[in-house]
């Protein structure tokens, strides 16, 4: 097991080198929700286009939306959920592909097709790892919910104390996500080690590694996740504050830029946790190229 710390700068370099993967992540994230948007546009686009720009109360818009979308809600829900699932499947795929490629190909050229086919070949193993993360998040949140019930059961305590408790619980819920996420990121790389089979064990080792290096782990995650989330929120905030930025052109440009930044961040974040240094410009791999089992 490696003791290497996650490296933000390595992630940055790797993401730049893996620009084809970044581009693929960008394209897929843009595409997955297109069906949902098409369904919505077909159902409500015409009617919504005729609504006045201002002066319509929120409740009125909500009613019109329900009126238009109501009849197609199963299709809309299916489209949105399958978009979400596709994104998940895809993330697992390129995670697996990047690990296999980096661990087993040394400094060979970056070929997208090769990365994706490797990912596809070993997809199920990394999917098990991802499912472990999902289960851990679910379990952790169930624990937080139990904590919420226990706190609220002691209703006689002071309001301040309850406030402190609720904030603590909210923090715990976030911590659960962070830990599971980090364990998954590290586990994904551990799962690439020759001879590794069990995704759950890799995840547990990932968690152990995270707990051994909590500061560098969280710091690396924050350094990548904050700009990614900020980029995702940017078009929303911009459009909300400035009407000119809602238009189809400005909105798409802004959204596209945000999507690119996000894709870069996700690839960079993932690569930052690589225990091998095979692809960097700073010399040969720590472990050398492996052999495909």
């Amino acid at each position: 097991m490696t003791k290497a710390r996650p490296s933000w700068s390595f992630g940055l370099r790797t993401a730049a080198e893996l620009w084809r993967v970044v581009a693929a992540v960008f394209v897929v994230s843009e595409l997955v929700f297109v069906p949902a948007q098409i369904v919505l546009q077909a159902a409500a686009g015409e009617a919504l286009g005729h609504l006045p720009d201002d002066g319509l109360p929120v409740g009125e818009i909500a009613l019109i939306l329900v009126e238009q979308v109501g009849p197609v809600w199963p299709a809309l829900l299916t489209a949105a959920l399958s978009g979400w699932c596709a994104l998940w499947l895809w993330t697992v795929l390129w995670h697996a592909g990047v690990v296999r490629w980096l661990v087993f190909s040394g400094r060979r050229d970056v070929r997208l097709a090769e990365i994706l086919s490797r990912g596809l070949l070993h997809w199920w193993r990394w999917a098990r790892l991802a499912l472990t993360s999902v289960a851990a998040i679910g379990l952790g949140h169930a624990g937080v919910w139990v904590g919420y019930r226990i706190v609220t059961d002691r209703a006689a305590t002071s309001e301040l104390l309850i406030g402190v408790w609720l904030v603590t619980l909210a923090g715990l819920a976030l911590l659960v996500v962070l830990l599971a996420w980090l364990a998954g990121l590290r586990g994904a790389w551990l799962l690439g080690e020759p001879g590794r089979r069990s995704a759950v064990l890799a995840w547990v080792d990932g968690l152990a590694g995270t707990l051994r290096q909590p500061v560098s782990s969280v710091l690396t995650l924050v350094l990548w996740a904050v700009p990614a989330v900020a980029a995702a929120a940017l078009p929303l905030i911009a459009g909300w504050r400035l009407e000119a930025l809602r238009g189809p052109l400005a909105g798409a440009a802004l959204g596209g830029l945000a999507g690119l930044i996000q894709a870069f961040c996700w690839v960079g974040l993932f690569a930052s946790f690589a225990p091998v240094r095979g692809v960097g410009r700073d010399g040969p791999s720590a472990q050398g190229p492996g052999r495909e089992p």
Binding site: V32, F33, A47, G49, T91, I137, A232, P248, G255
Partner: peptide, 30 residues
Amino acid sequence: HWRDEPAKTGPLWWLGDALRLIGLVAVPGS
């Protein structure tokens, strides 16, 4: 309601971006 020039950005201008933001939830899970 009727408009001579239907709005290109209806009240749902935010939806695509919101979906993308919600989509992020998929990432920690993988």
